[in-house]
Amino acid sequence: MARYNEAKCRLCRREGMKLFLKGDRCFTDKCAYERRPYAPGHAGRMRKKMSDYAIQLREKQKVRRMYGILEDQFRKYFHQADMMKGVTGANLLILLERRLDNVIYRMGFANSRDQARQLVRHGVFQLNGRKANIPSLSCRPGDVLTVREKSRKIPVIMEAQEVMARRPQPGWLEVDGANFKGTVTGLPTREDIQFPINEQLIVELYSK
Rank of each mutant, 00 (worst) to 15 (best):
I193E: 04
D176Y: 13
L119W: 02
E97V: 03
P155K: 07
P168F: 05
E162H: 12
G89N: 02
R45I: 02
Y38G: 07
R148T: 10
S151P: 00
A39M: 13
G186E: 05
Y206T: 01
G23I: 03
D82P: 01
F20S: 12
P170H: 06
K49H: 12
Q161F: 08
K18T: 10
G123K: 12
L100S: 06
Q56H: 12
G123T: 09
D52L: 09
Q194D: 14
P170N: 07
K48P: 02
T146D: 09
G129I: 10
A81V: 01
Q115G: 04
I134L: 14
D176P: 11
M84E: 12
Q73V: 01
G182W: 10
A81D: 02
L96P: 08
Y105T: 00
M107P: 02
P155N: 14
Y67W: 06
E162T: 13
K181W: 01
E6T: 01
I202Q: 09
R64H: 00
F27R: 14
A110I: 08
G129M: 11
F180T: 05
N133T: 09
G186P: 06
Y4E: 08
Q194T: 15
G16H: 11
T28K: 06
W172F: 14
F125W: 03
L100C: 01
H42Y: 03
K18R: 13
N198W: 00
T88F: 02
L21F: 01
F125C: 03
R99S: 04
I202F: 08
I157R: 10
F180G: 05
L127A: 11
L100Y: 13
T88S: 02
T189N: 09
R98C: 07
G171M: 02
M17K: 15
R65Q: 08
F109C: 09
I104M: 13
A43Y: 11
L95H: 09
P37L: 09
L11F: 03
L205D: 03
Q61T: 01
K208L: 15
Q80R: 07
E204I: 00
G23P: 04
